[in-house]
Amino acid sequence: MVLPQALPHIRRLMRALLPAFSLVLVLGAIAYLNPRAISYFGFNLMLNLAVPIALATVAQMFVIAGNDLDLSIGPFIGFAGCVTATWLHDSPLMGAIILAGCVAAYAALGALIQLRSLPSIVVTLGMSFVWQGLAILVLPKPGGAPPDWLASLMSLQPPLVPFPVLAAVGLALIAWFGLMRTSYGAILRGSGGNASAIARAGWSLLKIKMALFALAGLFGVLSGMALIGITTSADANIGNGYTLLSIAGVILGGGEFMGGIVSPVGAVIGALTLALAASPLLTFLQIPPDWQVGANGAILIIVLAARAQIGRKGALT
Protein backbone atom coordinates (compact mmCIF):
# COMPACT_ATOMS: atom_id res chain seq x y z
CA MET A 1 0.00 0.00 0.00
CA VAL A 2 1.75 3.16 -1.15
CA LEU A 3 -1.26 5.44 -0.81
CA PRO A 4 -0.59 8.72 0.99
CA GLN A 5 -0.82 8.25 4.71
CA ALA A 6 -0.62 11.88 5.72
CA LEU A 7 -4.28 12.52 5.03
CA PRO A 8 -5.83 10.90 8.10
CA HIS A 9 -3.25 12.58 10.30
CA ILE A 10 -4.07 16.03 9.04
CA ARG A 11 -7.75 15.37 9.40
CA ARG A 12 -7.19 14.08 12.90
CA LEU A 13 -5.16 17.14 13.82
CA MET A 14 -7.87 19.44 12.49
CA ARG A 15 -10.38 17.54 14.48
CA ALA A 16 -8.30 17.69 17.62
CA LEU A 17 -7.98 21.45 17.22
CA LEU A 18 -11.66 21.97 16.52
CA PRO A 19 -12.79 22.11 20.17
CA ALA A 20 -10.15 24.74 20.86
CA PHE A 21 -11.20 26.57 17.74
CA SER A 22 -14.83 26.66 18.77
CA LEU A 23 -13.81 27.94 22.21
CA VAL A 24 -11.80 30.73 20.59
CA LEU A 25 -14.77 31.53 18.37
CA VAL A 26 -17.14 31.86 21.33
CA LEU A 27 -14.58 33.94 23.23
CA GLY A 28 -14.09 36.12 20.17
CA ALA A 29 -17.82 36.70 19.92
CA ILE A 30 -17.98 37.65 23.57
CA ALA A 31 -14.99 39.98 23.23
CA TYR A 32 -16.65 41.65 20.28
CA LEU A 33 -19.98 42.07 22.03
CA ASN A 34 -18.59 43.13 25.35
CA PRO A 35 -14.84 43.76 25.52
CA ARG A 36 -14.98 44.33 29.26
CA ALA A 37 -15.93 40.70 29.79
CA ILE A 38 -12.45 39.62 28.77
CA SER A 39 -10.83 40.32 32.12
CA TYR A 40 -9.93 38.53 35.30
CA PHE A 41 -13.26 39.26 36.91
CA GLY A 42 -15.17 38.79 33.71
CA PHE A 43 -13.83 35.26 33.39
CA ASN A 44 -14.40 34.59 37.04
CA LEU A 45 -18.03 35.49 36.51
CA MET A 46 -18.60 33.92 33.12
CA LEU A 47 -16.87 30.64 33.96
CA ASN A 48 -18.61 30.51 37.31
CA LEU A 49 -20.21 27.14 36.62
CA ALA A 50 -17.53 25.84 34.30
CA VAL A 51 -15.77 23.75 36.95
CA PRO A 52 -18.73 21.50 37.81
CA ILE A 53 -19.64 21.22 34.13
CA ALA A 54 -16.08 20.21 33.24
CA LEU A 55 -16.01 17.65 36.04
CA ALA A 56 -19.34 16.22 34.88
CA THR A 57 -18.04 16.03 31.32
CA VAL A 58 -14.92 14.16 32.42
CA ALA A 59 -17.13 11.76 34.38
CA GLN A 60 -19.25 11.13 31.29
CA MET A 61 -16.10 10.71 29.21
CA PHE A 62 -14.98 7.70 31.23
CA VAL A 63 -18.32 6.02 30.64
CA ILE A 64 -18.29 6.83 26.92
CA ALA A 65 -14.72 5.50 26.64
CA GLY A 66 -16.17 2.07 27.42
CA ASN A 67 -18.94 2.43 24.79
CA ASP A 68 -21.57 3.14 27.40
CA LEU A 69 -23.65 6.20 28.11
CA ASP A 70 -24.64 7.56 31.52
CA LEU A 71 -28.04 9.20 31.45
CA SER A 72 -28.08 9.46 35.25
CA ILE A 73 -25.01 11.62 35.80
CA GLY A 74 -27.10 14.79 36.20
CA PRO A 75 -29.38 13.53 38.97
CA PHE A 76 -26.35 11.81 40.49
CA ILE A 77 -24.51 15.13 40.66
CA GLY A 78 -27.65 16.60 42.19
CA PHE A 79 -27.69 13.87 44.85
CA ALA A 80 -23.97 14.32 45.58
CA GLY A 81 -24.66 18.05 45.89
CA CYS A 82 -27.50 17.45 48.34
CA VAL A 83 -25.29 15.20 50.44
CA THR A 84 -22.55 17.83 50.36
CA ALA A 85 -24.93 20.54 51.51
CA THR A 86 -26.34 18.46 54.35
CA TRP A 87 -24.36 15.49 55.68
CA LEU A 88 -20.90 16.72 54.65
CA HIS A 89 -21.66 20.07 56.26
CA ASP A 90 -23.23 18.72 59.45
CA SER A 91 -21.13 15.58 60.08
CA PRO A 92 -18.17 15.47 57.71
CA LEU A 93 -17.22 11.85 58.40
CA MET A 94 -20.69 10.54 57.65
CA GLY A 95 -20.85 12.72 54.54
CA ALA A 96 -17.52 11.43 53.31
CA ILE A 97 -18.64 7.84 53.86
CA ILE A 98 -21.84 8.42 51.91
CA LEU A 99 -19.97 10.05 49.02
CA ALA A 100 -17.48 7.18 48.95
CA GLY A 101 -20.49 4.88 48.92
CA CYS A 102 -21.74 6.73 45.83
CA VAL A 103 -18.51 5.92 44.01
CA ALA A 104 -18.82 2.30 45.09
CA ALA A 105 -22.42 2.27 43.85
CA TYR A 106 -21.18 3.42 40.46
CA ALA A 107 -18.59 0.64 40.37
CA ALA A 108 -21.34 -1.82 41.26
CA LEU A 109 -23.49 -0.42 38.45
CA GLY A 110 -20.62 -1.02 36.05
CA ALA A 111 -20.34 -4.59 37.32
CA LEU A 112 -24.07 -5.14 36.86
CA ILE A 113 -23.96 -3.81 33.30
CA GLN A 114 -20.98 -5.99 32.43
CA LEU A 115 -22.13 -9.19 34.14
CA ARG A 116 -25.64 -9.14 32.74
CA SER A 117 -24.56 -7.50 29.46
CA LEU A 118 -27.20 -4.81 29.90
CA PRO A 119 -27.70 -1.73 27.77
CA SER A 120 -26.23 1.09 29.84
CA ILE A 121 -28.67 3.64 28.43
CA VAL A 122 -31.58 1.90 30.04
CA VAL A 123 -29.92 1.00 33.31
CA THR A 124 -28.76 4.55 33.84
CA LEU A 125 -32.16 5.82 32.79
CA GLY A 126 -33.58 3.80 35.68
CA MET A 127 -30.82 5.03 37.97
CA SER A 128 -31.68 8.64 37.16
CA PHE A 129 -35.00 8.07 38.96
CA VAL A 130 -33.14 6.49 41.85
CA TRP A 131 -30.70 9.37 42.36
CA GLN A 132 -33.48 11.91 41.94
CA GLY A 133 -35.61 10.13 44.51
CA LEU A 134 -32.71 9.90 46.95
CA ALA A 135 -31.92 13.58 46.47
CA ILE A 136 -35.51 14.51 47.31
CA LEU A 137 -35.38 12.29 50.39
CA VAL A 138 -32.13 13.88 51.58
CA LEU A 139 -33.24 17.44 50.86
CA PRO A 140 -37.01 17.76 50.40
CA LYS A 141 -36.77 21.56 50.24
CA PRO A 142 -34.01 23.68 48.71
CA GLY A 143 -31.46 24.69 51.29
CA GLY A 144 -28.38 23.41 53.07
CA ALA A 145 -24.90 24.85 52.98
CA PRO A 146 -21.50 23.73 51.79
CA PRO A 147 -18.67 23.02 54.26
CA ASP A 148 -16.70 26.21 54.80
CA TRP A 149 -13.50 24.83 53.29
CA LEU A 150 -15.32 23.96 50.10
CA ALA A 151 -16.98 27.36 49.76
CA SER A 152 -13.67 29.12 50.28
CA LEU A 153 -11.89 26.79 47.85
CA MET A 154 -14.38 27.52 45.12
CA SER A 155 -14.17 31.26 45.67
CA LEU A 156 -10.36 31.34 45.58
CA GLN A 157 -8.93 34.28 43.71
CA PRO A 158 -5.41 33.30 42.68
CA PRO A 159 -3.20 36.00 41.16
CA LEU A 160 -3.30 36.58 37.39
CA VAL A 161 -5.27 33.54 36.30
CA PRO A 162 -8.90 33.12 37.39
CA PHE A 163 -9.59 30.03 39.48
CA PRO A 164 -11.97 28.33 37.00
CA VAL A 165 -9.32 28.49 34.30
CA LEU A 166 -6.65 27.04 36.61
CA ALA A 167 -9.01 24.31 37.76
CA ALA A 168 -9.95 23.42 34.17
CA VAL A 169 -6.31 23.19 33.08
CA GLY A 170 -5.46 21.04 36.08
CA LEU A 171 -8.44 18.77 35.46
CA ALA A 172 -7.60 18.41 31.77
CA LEU A 173 -4.01 17.46 32.61
CA ILE A 174 -5.00 14.91 35.23
CA ALA A 175 -7.62 13.26 33.01
CA TRP A 176 -5.30 13.30 29.99
CA PHE A 177 -2.44 11.74 31.89
CA GLY A 178 -4.59 9.11 33.54
CA LEU A 179 -6.46 7.95 30.47
CA MET A 180 -4.09 8.70 27.61
CA ARG A 181 -0.62 8.22 29.06
CA THR A 182 -0.74 5.53 31.73
CA SER A 183 -0.44 1.94 30.67
CA TYR A 184 -3.75 0.95 32.27
CA GLY A 185 -5.41 3.89 30.54
CA ALA A 186 -4.61 2.21 27.24
CA ILE A 187 -6.38 -0.92 28.46
CA LEU A 188 -9.41 1.11 29.56
CA ARG A 189 -9.69 2.75 26.13
CA GLY A 190 -8.98 -0.52 24.39
CA SER A 191 -12.06 -2.04 26.01
CA GLY A 192 -14.10 0.48 24.05
CA GLY A 193 -12.25 -0.25 20.84
CA ASN A 194 -12.33 -4.02 20.81
CA ALA A 195 -13.51 -5.62 24.02
CA SER A 196 -12.98 -9.19 22.91
CA ALA A 197 -9.38 -8.47 21.96
CA ILE A 198 -8.78 -7.10 25.45
CA ALA A 199 -10.38 -10.17 27.01
CA ARG A 200 -8.34 -12.47 24.80
CA ALA A 201 -5.16 -10.76 25.91
CA GLY A 202 -6.07 -11.86 29.42
CA TRP A 203 -7.58 -8.70 30.94
CA SER A 204 -10.73 -8.76 33.03
CA LEU A 205 -13.51 -6.82 31.32
CA LEU A 206 -15.40 -6.78 34.61
CA LYS A 207 -12.59 -4.93 36.39
CA ILE A 208 -12.22 -2.54 33.48
CA LYS A 209 -15.91 -1.69 33.44
CA MET A 210 -15.95 -1.24 37.20
CA ALA A 211 -12.91 1.03 37.00
CA LEU A 212 -14.49 3.18 34.29
CA PHE A 213 -17.74 3.55 36.21
CA ALA A 214 -15.97 4.17 39.52
CA LEU A 215 -14.00 6.97 37.86
CA ALA A 216 -17.24 8.39 36.50
CA GLY A 217 -18.72 8.20 40.00
CA LEU A 218 -15.68 9.90 41.51
CA PHE A 219 -15.75 12.81 39.09
CA GLY A 220 -19.53 12.99 39.42
CA VAL A 221 -19.17 13.40 43.21
CA LEU A 222 -16.50 16.05 42.69
CA SER A 223 -18.80 17.85 40.29
CA GLY A 224 -21.63 17.84 42.82
CA MET A 225 -19.31 19.16 45.54
CA ALA A 226 -17.92 21.89 43.28
CA LEU A 227 -21.43 22.90 42.30
CA ILE A 228 -22.51 23.33 45.92
CA GLY A 229 -19.28 25.18 46.71
CA ILE A 230 -20.30 27.76 44.12
CA THR A 231 -24.06 27.99 44.60
CA THR A 232 -23.78 27.71 48.42
CA SER A 233 -27.10 25.92 48.69
CA ALA A 234 -28.60 22.85 47.13
CA ASP A 235 -31.87 21.62 45.72
CA ALA A 236 -32.81 18.18 44.52
CA ASN A 237 -33.05 19.21 40.87
CA ILE A 238 -29.82 21.18 40.80
CA GLY A 239 -27.90 18.73 38.63
CA ASN A 240 -30.59 17.72 36.15
CA GLY A 241 -29.25 19.72 33.22
CA TYR A 242 -25.82 18.16 33.56
CA THR A 243 -26.62 14.87 31.85
CA LEU A 244 -27.08 16.50 28.49
CA LEU A 245 -24.36 19.11 29.02
CA SER A 246 -21.85 16.38 29.84
CA ILE A 247 -22.71 14.27 26.78
CA ALA A 248 -22.58 17.30 24.51
CA GLY A 249 -19.26 18.33 26.05
CA VAL A 250 -17.66 14.96 25.36
CA ILE A 251 -18.87 14.89 21.76
CA LEU A 252 -17.97 18.54 21.22
CA GLY A 253 -14.51 17.68 22.53
CA GLY A 254 -13.95 15.10 19.81
CA GLY A 255 -15.34 11.98 21.47
CA GLU A 256 -17.38 9.32 19.70
CA PHE A 257 -20.20 7.25 21.14
CA MET A 258 -18.64 4.04 19.91
CA GLY A 259 -15.13 2.70 19.58
CA GLY A 260 -13.50 4.05 22.73
CA ILE A 261 -12.57 7.29 21.02
CA VAL A 262 -12.39 10.11 23.60
CA SER A 263 -10.22 13.10 24.27
CA PRO A 264 -9.90 14.33 27.87
CA VAL A 265 -8.43 17.71 26.93
CA GLY A 266 -11.06 18.14 24.23
CA ALA A 267 -13.80 17.22 26.70
CA VAL A 268 -12.73 19.91 29.16
CA ILE A 269 -12.51 22.48 26.37
CA GLY A 270 -15.92 21.34 25.13
CA ALA A 271 -17.31 21.85 28.62
CA LEU A 272 -15.83 25.38 28.81
CA THR A 273 -17.29 26.22 25.41
CA LEU A 274 -20.71 25.06 26.51
CA ALA A 275 -20.45 26.93 29.79
CA LEU A 276 -19.65 30.15 27.93
CA ALA A 277 -22.14 29.62 25.13
CA ALA A 278 -24.94 28.60 27.49
CA SER A 279 -25.39 31.88 29.31
CA PRO A 280 -22.80 34.67 28.98
CA LEU A 281 -22.82 34.72 25.19
CA LEU A 282 -26.58 34.65 24.98
CA THR A 283 -26.87 37.41 27.54
CA PHE A 284 -24.49 39.60 25.56
CA LEU A 285 -26.34 38.81 22.36
CA GLN A 286 -29.49 40.02 24.11
CA ILE A 287 -31.45 37.00 23.10
CA PRO A 288 -34.95 37.20 24.58
CA PRO A 289 -35.53 34.66 27.35
CA ASP A 290 -38.09 32.75 25.24
CA TRP A 291 -35.41 31.93 22.70
CA GLN A 292 -32.47 31.21 25.00
CA VAL A 293 -33.02 27.47 25.09
CA GLY A 294 -33.42 27.42 21.32
CA ALA A 295 -30.25 29.45 20.84
CA ASN A 296 -28.42 26.86 22.94
CA GLY A 297 -29.69 24.17 20.62
CA ALA A 298 -28.65 26.15 17.56
CA ILE A 299 -25.13 26.67 18.93
CA LEU A 300 -24.82 22.94 19.61
CA ILE A 301 -25.92 22.18 16.06
CA ILE A 302 -23.52 24.67 14.48
CA VAL A 303 -20.47 23.52 16.42
CA LEU A 304 -21.18 19.82 15.95
CA ALA A 305 -21.92 20.25 12.28
CA ALA A 306 -18.57 21.99 11.83
CA ARG A 307 -16.87 19.17 13.67
CA ALA A 308 -18.55 16.56 11.52
CA GLN A 309 -17.67 18.31 8.28
CA ILE A 310 -14.01 18.44 9.19
CA GLY A 311 -13.91 14.96 10.58
CA ARG A 312 -15.81 13.54 7.63
CA LYS A 313 -14.43 10.14 6.88
CA GLY A 314 -15.92 9.66 3.48
CA ALA A 315 -19.46 8.44 3.26
CA LEU A 316 -20.44 4.82 3.11
CA THR A 317 -20.49 4.89 -0.65
Partner: peptide, 25 residues
Protein backbone atom coordinates in the same frame (compact mmCIF):
# COMPACT_ATOMS: atom_id res chain seq x y z
CA UNK B 1 -7.84 -8.64 17.43
CA UNK B 2 -6.36 -5.19 17.52
CA UNK B 3 -8.06 -2.21 19.14
CA UNK B 4 -8.61 0.24 16.29
CA UNK B 5 -8.75 3.27 18.59
CA UNK B 6 -5.29 2.62 20.04
CA UNK B 7 -1.89 3.17 18.50
CA UNK B 8 0.27 0.30 17.32
CA UNK B 9 2.43 0.70 20.43
CA UNK B 10 -0.58 0.74 22.74
CA UNK B 11 -1.83 -2.46 21.16
CA UNK B 12 1.49 -4.03 22.05
CA UNK B 13 0.94 -2.90 25.61
CA UNK B 14 -2.46 -4.61 25.62
CA UNK B 15 -0.69 -7.82 24.70
CA UNK B 16 2.06 -7.57 27.35
CA UNK B 17 1.04 -7.14 31.00
CA UNK B 18 4.72 -6.53 31.81
CA UNK B 19 4.83 -3.30 29.82
CA UNK B 20 4.09 -0.82 32.62
CA UNK B 21 5.76 1.98 34.48
CA UNK B 22 7.77 4.87 33.19
CA UNK B 23 8.66 4.75 29.52
CA UNK B 24 6.31 1.86 28.66
CA UNK B 25 5.27 3.67 25.52
Amino acid sequence: SLCANLTVAENVRVFHPALTGMGWR
